[in-house]
Design a protein around this nucleic acid. Sequence first.
RNA 1: GGCGGUGUAGCUCAGUCGGUUAGAGCGGCGGCUUCAUAAGCCGUAGGUCGUUGGUUCGAGUCCAACCACCGCUACCA
Length: 521
Amino acid sequence: MTGAFYVTTPIYYVNAEPHIGHTYTTVVVDTLARYHRMAGEPTFFLTGTDEHGEKVAEVAEQRGETPTAVADRYSKAFRSTWDELGFSYDRFIRTTDPDHVAMVQLILQKVYDAGEIYFQEYEGLYCVGCERFLTERDMADGLCRDHDRAPERRKESNYFFRIAKHFNWLSDTIEKHPDFIRPPGFRKETLAMLREESGLGDLCISRPKDRLSWGIELPFDGDYVCYVWFDALINYLTAVGYPDGPDFERLWGAAEHVIGKDILKPHAIFWPILLRVIGAPLFRHLNVHGHWNVDKRKVSKSLGNMISPLAMKQRYGFDAFRYVLLRDMVFGLDANFTEAGLVARINADLANNLGNLVSRTLNMTARYSGGRVPQPGAPDDLENEIAEAAPRTAAQVDRHLRRCEVSRALEAIFGFLDGVNRYLETRAPWKAARDGGEEAKRLVSTSLYTACEALRVTALMIAPFLPATAPAILERLGIPGALEGARLPDDVARWGVLAPGTPTVKGPALFPRIEPPAEDA
RNA sequence: GGCGGUGUAGCUCAGUCGGUUAGAGCGGCGGCUUCAUAAGCCGUAGGUCGUUGGUUCGAGUCCAACCACCGCUACCA
């Protein structure tokens, strides 16, 4: 596993503060990036903001500001939030960055020169509410489906990108590479969109400046700006120096996009076609996740249920919050978030299972072994089982993460911890400690050593998921630097690394149990 | 309207190529234990596998229709 790893979040549109949805995507990508770094793969993690388009121009207009000022403010909100949450991104890109603007124009020109863009005047039904032309499918009984108002007849000229003629090979590609778009539900949905009857046609990629000026100008016609999706998708190339930057070839071939299901179409259809047209290889995988509902309702500004990640960090600690996000959404399906559910999950997994295991192990080490890692005796079957379960678990984590199945990866790790708790129950060192005989002493030392080792490898395995917790555990085990240079999954198979005699620290509860919130009447 | 997804124990979900008495975690209940964050361990809970009708020796697992919820339908992760 020495290949590179290039992983991206979508760029977030600058019309709202970061909420649970943006946070989830970014947490997943951060976890993948951390994992692949620990797997020894040169990794590049890209996130950023999408800043052009009508919505931003509108907000600026309303407040008497420039679009630039509005974009700056929101972009900073994202960036400072991501920084405070400790995300390990390598670049925070903005679609207003000069290198990106230049890249978009370079690519537009390239596509234009290739004859893949045509100019067309058309007359159609325009909905003022949507600020776009409607097709028959957008209407019901002659009214706009979304705004319930009659569209007006308008004439406009625009540039179109010939995408329809590419649907066949794209379909074939998706058929031949079953995991190109995953999980499979979204692959099927994409194939359905590509079938003729879906009515998907060529893509309008321009907006006349008199309608919208906040965008990147078309290099071949100064009266138009570029349609936002065209602008936005290209950020993935800008960041790796298309077409001949030093890292381009290495990174681009390993590109993994992570998106929410709402932006499937641009990523699954427009993007591969654009890449093909400019002669760039396709990305490796498009990983599509579902949406979080909050208290069984859609996340929306008007409901005020956006869930601020900073508030969650303050209340529960960010490791705990990110654990719940990663654990409680099956990648690809929708999930429901409630604060009661979050507390239940934190208590069951982080406090009772992991936290308490750390606590009991280190407490016994303090009591029965003078606060030092004991010298183990010869391992027996039970010890061997734990030592063998560890690399087996690490292999499962590896397999799951390479498929983007983050919740499954965590299930595997916490299953391993269940086993360690059971192991302690069976060995019951606290009983043997009362006995005091030679054999009993050996049992205490061996079982505590095994538990400490199990915690050590657990810390390695959870590091990508709980980046603050992992070093905290290792510090208590007396090996604060153990994460440096650690390799996953291989190092988990190296059992017996912890040196007997190493001083340990019990410390306060890693994840204190949280009182469940009062039930609403 | 079109397309797609989901529907399995109170909750969140597994269920590979169809095959003996449908599984896990959480919660609940009973017991054990006391090293530990009233944590841990053991046992248990009987859910018409959305509905109906098919294919089959046999279907949660394939087919059809229907119902419910959700999503997309060109700027909400």
